[in-house]
Computed example of a mutant assay.
Amino acid sequence: MKRSNAAKFAAVAAAGVLALTACDNAAEDTGDSGNGGGEEASEIRVGLAFDVGGRGDRSFNDSAYRGLQQAADELGVETADFEPADGEADSDKQDRLANMAEEGFDVVIGVGFAYQEPMEAVAENYPDTNFAIVDSEVEGHDNITSLVFAEEQASFLAGAAAALTTEEDHVGFVGGVETPLIHKFEAGYVAGVEHVNEDINVEVDYLSQPPDMSGFSDPAQGREAAQAQYDRGADVIYHAAGASGNGVLQSAVDNEFTFIGVDSDQYENAEEQQKPYVLTSAIKQVDVAVFEMIKSVVEGDPQTGIQRFELADGGVDYTLSNEEAIEPIQEELDALKQEIIDGEIEVPTQP
């Protein structure tokens, strides 16, 4: 990013925690609209299109939704959110984005890299609409803002946490769909494990291959993959699989192994009986990025270009919610975190 966002992220993230919810009920594709409770209602209208898995994934989509809700509550913007259909084509995504722009939404946000080509196709026809995409770098469009994250940095800390807590010297990674984005999670995680102990065995499994995106929305398959890794000896498993990660967590409960969450604080979102099994989560502040994008439009100075969020500005991190579990290794993780920030550790982005 062009300037440090540390203070901004701390303030906005703190506010976002107050609104943290499980978001278990998904909205229909026709949109879930509402006005914010701010002191002054804004004339700005914001539409947000979810990625595979939709609301209720307790991860990536729910984080984006928290940012949308925070904007409604604090900025008074009118919001609507839209669910994807199972197995939908790019043309469906393109129609969804175009419909929002045509209906007069001032800000149109696509959650997930799958919206890149549909958004590029639509944005040029609506130059006065502020588009934003999460997890994809788009260049050459003045009205598209890219909200991207250093997922590999947070994943490195997840890998270090796994290595510091495994009793079997055997850990696992479950990826939703094998794409370049999820490769960043895998690469960082494996690097973090190996930095602590090169002799630890790391299991890696993906639930689906492109163009099949079901790996992000199949908890049963996530549970099956985690069970298989556990049966092969893994006692700590990290996932980057969207809603499928809920199955990984359930497998952790069933088999009493350690789970590491992703994107959102999955300890906070877990059911009470699941929480003891959640060591930490490698989070990226999608909610903060979404809120700040909307806020920039409300304030009349819309963000543009590529907005990149890293450990240094609090855009990615690991969570401390399960204090009893994380406290014994927190000092070591914080030291590694600082080494990454200082450039002493360079985290790979490819396996």
Rank of each mutant, 00 (worst) to 15 (best):
L157Q: 04
A158H: 00
G159E: 00
A160P: 04
A161V: 06
A162P: 06
L164P: 02
T165W: 03
E167L: 09
E167I: 10
E167N: 10
H170S: 13
V171A: 10
F173P: 06
V174E: 10
G176V: 04
V177N: 05
T179G: 09
P180S: 06
P180F: 03
L181E: 01
L181F: 09
I182N: 00
I182Y: 12
V190P: 00
A191Y: 01
E194H: 09
E194K: 06
H195R: 03
H195M: 04
V196Q: 06
E198P: 12
I200S: 14
V202I: 14
L207H: 11
S208L: 10
Q209C: 07
P210Q: 09
S214L: 11
S214Q: 08
S214W: 11
G215H: 04
G215A: 02
F216T: 07
F216D: 12
P219G: 05
G222H: 01
R223A: 11
E224H: 07
A225G: 05
Q227T: 14
Q227D: 14
A228Y: 15
Q229T: 11
Y230S: 15
R232D: 09
G233K: 04
G233D: 07
D235S: 12
V236E: 08
G242N: 12
G242S: 09
S244V: 07
G245I: 08
G245Q: 01
G245C: 08
G247H: 03
V248A: 00
L249M: 08
Q250F: 15
A252E: 13
V253G: 05
D254Y: 05
F257G: 07
F257D: 06
F259V: 02
I260K: 00
I260L: 01
G261D: 02
D263A: 10
D263N: 09
D263F: 05
Q266Y: 06
Y267L: 01
N269L: 13
E272A: 06
E272Q: 13
